[in-house]
Amino acid sequence: MIPAVEFVGTGKVYRTGFFMRRIEALRDLTLRVEPGEIFGFIGPNGAGKTTTIKILAGLHESTSGEARIFGVDHRDPKARSRMGFLPERPYFYLHLTAREVLRFYGQLSLVPDDVIARRTGELLERVELSRFADVPLRKYSKGMLQRVGLCQALLHDPDLVVLDEPMSGLDPMGRALVSSLIREEQEAGRTVFFSSHILHDVETLCDRVAIIIGGQLRALGAVEALVAEHGNLEEAFLSEVDRSTPVDPKTLGVMA
């Protein structure tokens, strides 16, 4: 079966400053995410999570190795036709309403107009924003914008949903909503790949998890197995952090 996401020896090096100093944000990442699973991607700040996700989203290009979405190279825009993406803090044209912004994203994803209208109604209802569908986004709270972000990620009915810190800045009700959406996506046969600092959410939602530290993959496995070994995911994570070699912030993992 073709994996939903596949990294093979993927690396990312940035060049920065006047002297083009080399910063290695990601080193030799190899992992597969199988279709239909909820996959958690965790690590401390600056570990390379966002860099990895940006490679998937087509915002960054890897400098070594390969990255594929359903077998299609991440550099090919077609790879993202089956992917929905929610950035850590989604930004939109704030003068548009939720309905208008979803129409815009639907058109960019080449979704027929009648499908956009139907999906917009369904999704706004699902995230409890129907009443605000025609209100400009500048009047929305941060949590409401995050929910619009989820709608745009799901609008074109993608087979893979990539979420970067989807719970960030949400209140408990918002987090519960996102959690139930992630489960619903899996029940519908879709793959969810998400990063989070909230380990409790990762533990309760994910089938498998990868721990990345200093741009390198440190652990990969079923959540159940990690929990059985360490008691809970937080302990597993902390023990990996303790075991990892201190990273030189001048050369590694500060750009994620």
Partner: peptide, 15 residues
């Protein structure tokens, strides 16, 4: 700068 490009370029849209 406003990061609106993130959600736009993550679509199947060639740069």
């Amino acid at each position: 700068d406003s990061r609106t490009a993130y959600t736009i370029l993550s679509r199947p849209l060639p740069r």
